[in-house]
Nucleic acid binder design. Structure first.
Lengths: 380, 380
DNA sequence: TCCAAAACTGAATCGCGAT
DNA sequence: CATCGCGATTCAGTTTTGG
């Protein structure tokens, strides 16, 4: 099998799934003790909304099962050892990604974090398995460990990959919440966050409980961006349970998989102590897309606008008359608020809600404010 | 052939090389016209000190993309960026990397730049061919193009991989120069630099000469870090010759390979005109752009403020609840700290950092002090 | 000539639901 | 599955235009 076949891995097409996917009932807010691949294998198809994975880079932690049977070569030969290592790591990665893909809902998404040691293997495997990369995100550490020897650049970041089930798959992205979190600017692909230390860093007998504990702030942003309250989040490499703790805090359900008893003990204790936020604090800014739609005609029907009223653009270059059916009349031409705005500007499209204005006490006000007023008055 | 064989590509062992490598005499400061693989094939073994490569990214763009105000994005739609499958892109990548590895000196190093579309394929291929990754470097763009549709995170960075010939290979790294360039702090793996625009951006007949011209500041830092004066730098995807121009300015020799006549013409003219750097240009290249400020949401994510906490103004006239996304809730109205402060005071604008306070031991403290605390704890 | 406002630009995998 | 209509969506910076 060559490169072509490798890339031709079975790809999940939207149409190949049932239109209505009934989520199987699964136990949530629970930790599964065992190997991530065999534990994922026990879960039904399409039951997870988001996966967050922090896989090991070191094959001693996860790869023994994947070493070729009897293929042990001369240990003196470094090249063969490397060959063994990269190949094993790739097979390990593909195996757990394949299970992850099966249990992830069609509109779910996956996050994987890694460093330059493994992230290129992971990214390639994600693409080969049919996942569709949406962004790569750089976690820029504000206080990284210096490079003591001075032989390279200070390794001051880690990379996360965010991917959907496929090119045409939908996915959850709370755009407005991210924009709000970033002082009203679009959230970028580089995130500046401190490493996990101080009180947050879990200790056991005075030493770090886990070598690569991730900061809760990182999971907080991931989960706030890509899940809704009540969603099920799976972490197949649970470690000390940062994913579980943040999920509980943010009102998401969680499933963790971990096989080291020491980590499990610390994780359960930690999550037990985590305090969930109350509902009003969990509410996030919604995009206009997520709000109920109001047709322009509704404003006319309900008397917010009277047929015959004149609308104007912001610069008073054009005017249009509102008709009883919610269409606009410009000269002899008629159409929707959007179509007429586009036609007049000779543009491919136009948002009529912000283009057209109505005169109130001598001042022009976009008709979108009328819609907001209507929504406020008519929403539960 | 599976993953195992794929990884077993012929690899060059250090011991298989002569201890003393006599550099073959090659023509430098020259542009080779043609395909990068066949032109590299004409060069002798072990003749290049550093390779900088900016290969096609294999973007897979859909139809036209329009900006909110109506303009059309001038996308990369060149034939040189089109590949049929991931498999054919991988084969192309491995082919040019194999030649690159052959002509690179044992103690040379290679840089490759890419985005999430291709960089994981490139990184995997580098490792499979036997290169040893030293760092991945993040070019954080200070002025990236926004995500116009609000569907993902703003794609605000590109990734560079820096690799040596192997785990035990030596390589050039001018540690002190990098530290000096970075105000006596170790140079980190994330570099903030603006994209190439303004006067630097080369034009032909009023339009950009190349769709993906790289900024000279990026090459300046790469070359200053990893080459010595007189070293030979090869760029197999020369484009409009940024690598050549910077090499000339820094007293390095250069070889470029390019097959498009239009680019060649522009590149030669540009390099001809390139002068040794003057002080002002040096300052621009060395000065890191101002880091982004701390967003209010970051304080929420990192636990400096908990969602649900109440903020008050200095005179306790109003109060607001902090929500999970860093927005404030006052009555039924929501918005950023600045917007809500302005709304309540009926003012055109408001500095939320000084307007809002949090109660600590019975006393009100402006939230700006929390920001100061955060900065003190997390500055690099 | 100068200043302010408007227009333009950058490696982009950029909507969604009804018919 | 393609087509169509509704209507949501942008940041930092440079260059051009207009007064």
């Amino acid at each position: 099998m060559g490169v072509m076949e490798r890339v031709a891995a079975p790809r999940r097409k939207k149409a190949a799934r049932p239109i209505v996917v009934e989520a199987a009932h699964i136990a949530t807010d629970t930790l599964l003790r065992g190997d991530c691949i065999s534990e994922m294998a026990k879960l039904p198809d399409n039951c997870i909304d988001m996966i967050f994975a922090d896989p090991p880079y070191n094959l001693q932690l996860g790869g023994d099962l994947f070493r070729p049977e009897g293929g042990r070569v001369d240990a003196v030969d470094n090249d063969w050892d490397k060959f063994d290592t990269l190949g094993s790591y790739d097979r390990f990665t593909k195996s757990w990604l394949r299970e992850a893909r099966r249990i992830l809902k069609p509109n779910g998404s996956i996050w994987v974090i890694g460093s330059y040691h493994n992230i290129f293997r992971v990214g390639t495997a994600l693409q080969d398995e049919g996942f569709w990369i949406l962004n790569d995100i750089i976690w820029r550490k504000s206080n990284p460990m210096p490079n003591f020897k001075g032989t390279r650049f200070t390794n001051a970041h880690e990379t996360l990959i965010w991917a959907s089930q496929g090119e045409d798959a939908k996915y959850t992205f709370n755009y407005k919440a991210m924009k709000t979190l970033n002082d009203e600017l679009q959230m970028r692909s580089d995130w500046v966050l401190p490493i996990c230390g101080g009180q947050e860093r879990l200790k056991r007998n005075g030493t770090k409980a886990h070598p690569t504990q991730k900061p809760e702030a990182l999971l907080y942003r991931v989960m706030l961006a890509c899940t809704k309250p009540g969603d099920v989040v799976l972490d197949p490499f649970f470690g000390t349970g940062t994913t579980g703790a943040v999920a509980k805090r943010l009102g998401r359900k969680w499933i963790g998989i971990e096989r080291e008893d020491d980590y499990i003990e610390v994780a359960l204790e930690r999550i037990e102590a985590a305090l969930p936020l109350d509902e009003s604090a969990l509410t996030i800014m919604q995009t206009a897309r997520q709000q109920p739609k109001v047709a322009f005609g509704t404003l006319v029907e309900t008397g917010y606008l009277t047929p015959g009223v004149l609308l104007r653009d912001a610069k008073r270059r054009w005017q249009a008359e509102v008709r009883a059916d919610g269409s606009l009349l410009v000269g002899t031409d008629t159409g929707s608020i959007h179509k007429m705005g586009a036609t007049l500007q000779n543009a491919p499209s136009c948002n009529g809600w912000t283009f057209w204005h109505v005169e109130v006490e001598g001042k022009l006000q976009p008709i979108d404010t009328l819609r907001q007023t209507y929504l406020l008055a008519n929403e539960p």
